[in-house]
Nucleic acid binder design. Structure first.
Length: 497
RNA sequence: GGUCGCGUGGCCGAGUGGCUAGGUAGAGGUCUGCAAAACCUCGUACAGCGGUUCGAAUCCGCUCGCGACCUCCA
């Protein structure tokens, strides 16, 4: 296979750049994981699948990826920045649980749901609460640089001081003067010297549930700090890819860049990748809007907005049919279309796995078909090389699938493609579906052996022109979710679309 | 209010100057005991108006509509 020049859209430069890892073949990738205080919803599914696909494709190209995705189990506050209540602790009080019980419970459900989407596990999945000493050390380092200050046992990052040496706002495209003047009510600043400053360490009140000792008293870390602590610990001070949802660009990732520069004098990541939001009726699906659908609700169909259940692979396919930087609009109609498309892909996978080249010297090569197949193979890779355009790649896979189906049903002879191209076509198709896109065959309850038995009876009945029995078997299979495919010389089954 | 982005055929969704995206839905056809599956063909899509160009969905301007971030959110 020829060398690929992968291009990646970098939020920092706002353009596609050639992907050149810092130390090939190694790639360090850090992705912001969930704050574990509720069930994972469709909005969590998108970055999980997006960066899983990035991981898969980079691995396919031969890179050795270290994928780190954190679990936020402390420090993420509700309400106004740096003034609200800890999300985990709030949920703990509501459910009368230990905060760690809440974190554990939703970490478990997150893992369960994300695994169903067939995502590879991260190589390291660190938790914020497991890295308190590292975070304290970072605060001390930033204080030593003179870019933070202590007030009543809390430590704040001094954005204005930082901005004299570095540029605060370069990721989100924000101008510091506008942030300063545009800040809402000036009396809500509290201890901060300036409203744009953010907390590195917060003093904990007596009733606060999650707290640790520090040089500044009992307290807990600020939200942005954990990612700096854990990414630098496991990937170094400057690594290749930092990913997450677009809504994290500001302030979270902006603050991470500031923290990284403040204590390590360099940007933490070379490439910043951000997936867009999933919308529902054109509006962002999110916790704060209360219009989110959890993954479990999708899998079971138990949600007022859902007309039916949608399988994990349908969801994965649905998300992959859009480029990750575009919004993707949810609707039952779109998901039903995705379900059909997914099943078509998987029926093709079964066929491709079992198909063999049929040597026939009397069949001539067909230049047009050959050219179409070769073009689709090249185009599928080119799409992935162009900032992981899974939507476009899938389009080319469907073109390959048409050829595969044609050969399978006898409408096209495999020899018209020649053995080399035919084999490459099958290999490309199966590699893309299974390895790169991560689409699995969702097997039903029925054993394949049983299906084969029924199909043998079906064939016998058909030969005997016992059409009543033929129809009976056909109906029976249909009720189990299978359709019978009658071809010229044989029969086969497929998943009902 | 500031910053940024979007508006593609019934629906979802690629595409950023000339080359069929694709899926799904619908229509017709081949095949079939009838079907199904599969394959083939089709609708003449680019918010509106103006401009640049030999040529624009694609570049520029204006208008309309929608959204994101600026406060926790993937």
């Amino acid at each position: 296979m020829k060398a690929h020049q992968l291009k990646v859209y970098n939020t920092l430069s706002r353009q596609k750049e050639n992907f050149l890892p810092i130390s090939p073949p190694f790639v360090g990738m850090y992705v912001c994981g969930p704050t574990v205080y509720g069930d994972a919803h469709l909005g969590h599914g998108r970055p999980a699948i997006t960066f899983d696909t990035v991981n898969r494709y980079l691995t396919h190209l031969g890179y050795r990826v270290r994928y780190v995705r954190n679990i936020t189990d402390v420090g993420h506050l509700t309400g106004d920045a740096d003034e609200g209540e800890d999300k985990i602790a709030k949920k703990a009080k509501l459910e009368q649980l230990e905060p760690m019980e809440v974190a554990q419970q939703y970490t478990d459900t997150y893992h369960r749901d994300i695994a169903l989407l067939n995502t590879w596990k991260p190589n390291i999945e660190p938790r914020a609460t497991g890295h308190i000493p590292e975070q304290i050390a970072l605060v001390e380092a930033i204080l030593n640089e003179g870019l933070a200050y202590v007030v009543n046992g809390s430590v704040y990052f001094d954005v204005l001081a930082y901005n004299k040496k570095y540029t605060y706002g370069k990721l989100s495209g924000r101008v510091i003067e506008e942030l300063v003047s545009g800040s809402r009510d000036l009396d809500g600043q509290g201890e901060k010297r300036n409203s744009v400053d953010f907390a590195l360490w917060k003093n904990a009140s007596a009733e606060h549930l999650m707290k640790w000792p520090s040089p500044w008293g009992i307290g807990f870390p600020g939200w942005h700090l954990e990612c700096t602590a854990m990414s630098s610990k496991y990937l170094g001070n400057h690594f290749d890819i930092h990913g997450g949802g677009m809504d994290l660009i500001f302030p979270h990732h902006e603050c991470e860049i500031a923290q990284g520069n403040a204590c390590n004098h360099q940007d933490p990541a070379k490439y910043w990748m951000h997936n867009n939001m999933i919308t529902i009726n054109g509006q962002k699906m999110g916790k704060s809007l209360g219009n989110f659908i959890t993954l479990q609700e999708l899998f079971t169909g138990k949600h007022p907005l859902l007309e039916q259940a949608y399988s994990p692979m349908t969801i994965r396919y649905f998300i992959l049919t859009a480029q990750y930087r575009s919004t993707l609009d949810f609707s039952n109609e779109a998901l039903r279309a995705a379900q059909k498309g997914y099943k078509k892909i998987i029926n093709g996978l079964r066929i491709a796995r079992n198909m063999h080249y049929d040597i026939n010297p009397e069949v001539a090569l067909d230049g047009e078909h050959l050219q179409q197949v070769e073009a689709s193979i090249t185009a599928a890779y080119r799409a992935m090389d162009d900032d992981f355009n899974t939507a476009q790649a899938i389009g080319h896979l469907f073109n390959l699938l048409k050829k595969i189906n044609s050969v399978f049903t006898g409408q096209l002879h495999s020899a018209t493609l020649g053995e080399e191209v035919f084999t490459k076509m099958l290999a490309t198709y199966t590699t893309f579906v299974e390895e790169i896109l991560g689409l699995l065959e969702e097997k039903g309850e029925v054993q394949e052996g049983l299906l084969d038995l029924l199909l043998r009876q079906y064939t016998e009945a058909k030969t005997a022109r016992n059409y009543a029995k033929v129809d009976e078997i056909r109906l029976g299979l249909k009720s189990m979710g299978f359709v019978v495919k009658d071809m010229k010389d044989r029969v086969d089954w497929a998943y009902e679309e």
